[in-house]
C-alpha cells in the first residue's frame, strides 16, 4: 500500500503519516466497518472512520482536532479494524503515529495525560533497565501523574508475594538498548519532518 497522493513535501498530518508509516488515508472509502467492530468506539470522541475522514478532508482545524482527540489513547491496538478492513488500512499503526505526534507537538488530550505518563515511565524502564522494573514504574508514574496514593494499599500484598523487587534486574547489554532508543528517536524525528 504505497502512499501515492501524498508527496514528499506534503506537510499535512496525513502526508507525514503516510511517509512515516506508509498508511494512506486516501485508501479508506468510509464504509465504517472499523467503527462498527471497534470495542472502544463507545469511549472514543472520534471513531476510527471519523478520524480517517478528518484526515482525508484535512481542512483548517481538522488536524488539530485529530491531534487533540482522545481516541488514539483509548485504542487498544486489538487490530479488529485492520483485520476486517476491506481496503487494508492499518488503523492501529495510524493510531500509534497519532499518539507520537500529539506528544511531539504537545497537543495531548487533557483526559489522556495519565496515559502519557504511564507510556513514558514504561519506556523509561525499558530504556534504562532493559526490562520492566515494577517499583520504578510505580514510582515514576506517581511522580509524573501526581496520583500519589492511588492503589497504595495494594503495595504490601504485592511486596510479600514477591511481585515488587526493590532493585531492578538489569539486562546484560544495556548499551545496545540505549542505542536502539537513540536510533528509534532519530528515525521518528526524521520521519516527522
Amino acid at each position: 500500500m504505497s502512499a501515492t497522493t501524498h508527496g514528499h513535501n506534503d506537510d499535512t498530518l496525513a502526508g507525514r503519516l503516510s511517509r512515516a508509516t506508509d498508511v494512506s488515508v486516501t485508501r479508506c472509502y468510509q464504509c465504517g466497518k472499523c467503527t462498527a467492530g471497534c470495542p472502544m468506539a463507545e469511549e472514543m470522541d472520534y471513531t476510527p472512520s471519523h478520524i480517517l475522514r478528518l484526515l482525508q478532508v484535512g481542512l483548517d482545524g481538522f488536524e488539530d482536532r485529530v491531534l487533540r482527540a482522545y481516541s488514539p489513547w483509548v485504542c487498544l491496538t486489538c487490530e479488529m479494524c485492520y483485520a476486517r478492513c476491506p481496503q487494508e488500512v492499518d488503523i492501529p499503526k495510524m493510531m500509534d503515529f497519532l499518539r507520537a505526534e500529539s506528544v511531539r507537538l504537545k497537543k495531548v488530550n487533557p483526559r489522556a495525560k495519565d496515559f502519557v505518563s504511564l507510556h513514558k515511565t514504561f519506556l523509561d524502564s525499558i530504556h534504562y533497565v532493559g526490562r520492566l522494573y515494577e517499583v520504578g514504574l510505580i514510582a515514576g508514574y506517581k511522580a509524573r501523574s501526581w496520583h500519589l496514593f492511588q492503589d497504595v494499599l495494594m503495595a504490601p500484598k504485592l511486596f510479600f508475594k514477591g511481585k515488587l523487587k526493590l532493585f531492578p534486574h538489569l539486562i546484560k547489554n544495556r548499551k545496545n538498548m540505549s542505542q536502539i532508543f537513540k536510533k528509534a528517536g532519530t528515525a521518528r524525528t526524521e520521519a516527522a519532518k
Binding site: C31, G32, T35, A36, T47, R53
Partner: peptide, 24 residues
C-alpha cells in the same frame, strides 16, 4: 455503513454496524 459482525444472542441475530452519516 458497513456491517462489522453478526452474532446470535437470545434467539436474535445481532447486527453491528456503523452509521457514518450520523457522526460515525
Amino acid at each position: 455503513g458497513r456491517v462489522s459482525t453478526i452474532y446470535e444472542e437470545d434467539g436474535k441475530l445481532i447486527v453491528k454496524g456503523a452509521d457514518t452519516l450520523l457522526g460515525h
